[in-house]
Simulated scan of single mutants.
Amino acid sequence: MTVALFGTGLLGGAIAQRLLACGEELWVWNRSPERHASLQRLGAHPAATPQEAASQASWLITVLSDGPTTRELLLERIQEGLRGRTVIQMGTIGSAESRDLAEAVSSLGGRYLEAPVLGSKPEALAGSLQLMAGGPEELFEQARPLLLRLSAEPVRLGEVGSAMAAKLALNQLIASLSHAFSLSLHLVQRSGVEVEAFMALLRNSALYAPTFDKKLERELTGDYSNPNFPTAHLRKDLALFEKAAQASGLETMGLEGLLSLLQKATPAGLDPLDYCALHALTAGRTAAAEQP
């Protein structure tokens, strides 16, 4: 099958590499054309415009930064080019945004499947992303051969909106777990407790999550470069979760402080760095300015 992929950033670029390694014919488009170069060397066809890419393929994969950007691409730039084509929307957007997109794509003669993923560049390159889908069951089955290139076990959770809700719920856990661990780590260090002694206790408890060890070295060294998931995206997704949760009647007051803290990442220059740079913000008076 011929695929057109829109958005060749951190995750999108890795997905493109995986599809090429699996032998798919791939057209790529990005707002920054220089990102096409490495993919072109691997066999991708670079498109000058979204319309050109869409015209070459029946399957259109979007991996863009947010809902408004995705909507603008599909409904304002490609528009009628969606007729007879299937959009697999993999970027993390709001559940309501996804449902609105599905309706709009359908009105233009296209089909729509949301397929957000848990995992980043390493998992995408290995084809081991955790992929959750929302949309018609028949469409999910038709897309399965393509989805299996990216995930060993793609799962359909329900209609459009369901997979996005699950994805936002998972990313809320990323933010909350990272925040909780960061505060605990700072406190034990400032109290003179050896980090490894604390970690041994934590690892042997029901409180342990593997992400703690995954991010420990970065937080101890203050090296948040080469991100798998940038801080700006974590903040965006947490805000989307809060909005969805409030629309469902949930009490989200506990998240307001964390969102407020993450707003400080922008002036601190942490937005493009790995999301565990949150550790620099929880440091309080030691300040993000002291981080490398």
Score class of each variant (00 low, 15 high):
173 L>Q: 14
90 M>Y: 02
118 L>P: 00
44 A>E: 12
202 L>S: 14
110 G>D: 01
191 S>G: 12
291 Q>R: 15
31 R>C: 07
29 W>E: 12
107 S>T: 14
111 R>C: 14
167 K>D: 01
201 L>A: 12
236 K>E: 05
41 R>E: 13
285 R>G: 10
244 A>Q: 08
77 R>P: 00
192 G>A: 07
165 A>E: 03
218 R>H: 09
132 M>P: 01
184 S>L: 04
229 F>S: 06
264 K>T: 14
23 G>A: 01
13 G>H: 03
225 S>P: 07
190 R>S: 13
171 N>L: 00
268 A>T: 09
235 R>P: 06
251 E>Y: 07
18 R>H: 11
161 G>T: 08
284 G>V: 04
279 H>W: 05
40 Q>N: 11
110 G>C: 01
284 G>R: 13
102 A>W: 03
63 V>P: 02
198 F>T: 07
43 G>L: 04
62 T>C: 15
69 T>H: 04
120 S>N: 08
258 L>G: 06
252 T>P: 03
225 S>M: 14
180 A>W: 07
2 T>G: 01
22 C>W: 06
225 S>H: 14
207 L>G: 08
94 G>S: 00
176 S>R: 14
132 M>S: 01
58 S>G: 06
48 A>N: 12
238 L>D: 15
212 F>R: 01
159 E>W: 04
98 S>F: 07
241 F>H: 05
74 L>R: 01
206 A>K: 08
290 E>C: 15
254 G>E: 03
34 E>M: 07
249 G>R: 13
53 A>N: 02
228 N>C: 04
267 P>M: 06
38 S>G: 09
85 R>H: 04
163 A>C: 01
105 V>G: 00
261 L>G: 06
91 G>K: 05
270 L>K: 02
204 N>D: 13
81 G>N: 03
39 L>I: 11
48 A>D: 15
258 L>Q: 03
18 R>Q: 05
289 A>Q: 10
204 N>E: 13
277 A>K: 05
78 I>R: 11
210 P>Q: 01
223 D>N: 14
146 L>N: 01
45 H>E: 09
49 T>P: 08
134 G>C: 00
107 S>L: 14
78 I>Y: 08
119 G>T: 00
61 I>L: 15
179 H>R: 02
149 R>L: 10
124 A>K: 07
41 R>Q: 14
205 S>V: 04
77 R>E: 15
124 A>F: 03
26 L>W: 02
45 H>W: 11
289 A>W: 14
102 A>K: 11
154 P>Y: 06
193 V>G: 02
269 G>L: 09
228 N>I: 11
60 L>D: 06
64 L>G: 05
167 K>C: 03
242 E>A: 15
219 E>I: 07
20 L>V: 09
203 R>V: 00
19 L>Q: 10
170 L>M: 12
138 E>F: 02
145 P>A: 08
1 M>W: 13
184 S>D: 00
281 L>A: 05
202 L>Q: 10
223 D>V: 15
191 S>K: 12
211 T>D: 10
232 A>I: 06
86 T>M: 03
8 T>R: 06
281 L>H: 09
72 E>F: 02
7 G>W: 08
230 P>S: 00
155 V>D: 04
123 E>Q: 14
47 A>R: 13
3 V>D: 05
40 Q>K: 09
